[in-house]
């Protein structure tokens, strides 16, 4: 599981996809492609973006949901918490220094 997450995060395009999904969760493939092209000059095919999304989904970092005839993509940052806690430990904000 952790290997999948590190592999997913190793690619700069996939990190950009996560950035954009953080800005607005629940995007169609069309919106994501537009953001990558217009904001990041990452002009790649829809198929390539789909493949990146599939890797992120495999790592549990993105979830796709069907809503009627539409398909939206949401970020799920939860798996990253385990990675952070592995070395930093659980979040102890407002706790003892």
């Amino acid at each position: 599981m952790a290997d999948d997450i590190f592999k997913a995060l190793a690619d700069p395009t996939r990190r950009t996809i996560l950035d954009e999904l953080t800005e607005r969760s629940g995007q169609t493939l069309f919106e994501l492609c537009g953001r990558l092209t217009m904001k990041h000059q990452l002009g790649m095919s829809r198929q390539a973006v789909s493949q990146h999304l599939a890797v992120l989904e495999g790592a549990g970092l993105v979830r796709s949901r069907r809503e009627g005839r539409y398909k939206f993509h949401d970020i799920d940052p939860e798996p990253l918490r385990h990675i952070a806690e592995r070395w930093i430990g659980p979040d102890t904000k407002d706790g003892t220094p």
Binding site: T28, E31, M38, F72
Partner: peptide, 23 residues
């Protein structure tokens, strides 16, 4: 709407459902 208003450089767009099978 399947895409709320979004400004990307020189263009602002949004995407809506025409209730007849199209966006």
């Amino acid at each position: 709407f399947t895409q709320e208003p979004l400004t990307m450089g020189p263009v602002t767009t949004a995407v809506l459902d025409d209730t007849c099978g199209n966006l």
